[in-house]
Amino acid sequence: MLTLYGTELSSRLLLGTARYPSPAIMEEAIRASGAQIVTVSLRRETAGGGRGGQFFEVIRSLGVHVLPNTAGCHTAKEAVLTARMARDLFATDWVKLEVIGHHDTLQPDVFALVEAAQELCADGFKVFPYTTADLVVAEKLLEAGCEVLMPWASPIGSARGLVDPASLVSMRGHFPDVPLIVDAGLGRPSHAAQAMELGYDAVLLNTAVAGAADPVAMARAFASAIDAGHAGYHAGLLEPRDMAVPSTPVIGKAVFA
């Protein structure tokens, strides 16, 4: 069981709701993934429109936990206001806190992230911070009151996978008791399995499923990979060795010459 802010979850996949070919495929992919947490955003609504409500009715019908994000916010102030609006709208104190620092990489602005996390945690939010694998930043986020950390694997939507696994290993080692979720940059199921084999508690992804030729099948594939990686980590992985080690016993081997 995965426990995030006191909520017990059997799925270790958090899934985004954006960029699917259609709302029906999104709905089917979420169901196929088994995800119990889905991310949503807040955007400007046009007068007389009601599409946001229609979209959210679909999400509500799935019976999943909603994790609103602050995607696109570039300052702590913007992110804090967006989080407060999300809490009012979605009636949840969970927030995926994103404060973007760079247009090309969508790298988090970790200074503004810590500032926003301090303000939101003090205001009763349960903050899921999208961060880098920097240990000092992680410490500051925990001091601010975050009980979950979500380091990136590589830039959002890049599908490059774990570009710096050593940093993620280090983070896992430094924070053995903090739920750690790899968020962003995963492109294929093997990336998710790799994150889980490092001992991560869950992964959050969106584009890799939504942008697949068959998002529903890919959702299922990610769910399987996450389960396999998690089980493998807990089964005790063999460390790599420099030289061959025969798997078949040498003792008792016939001598023919």
């Binding site: 699917y20 955003s41 807040l42 955007r43 400007r44 609504e45 409500g53 979209f55 959210f56």
Partner: peptide
């Protein structure tokens, strides 16, 4: 004034 609604997000 900002008027926002739920939208798809990652």
């Amino acid at each position: 004034i900002e008027i926002l609604a739920p939208k798809q997000g990652g």
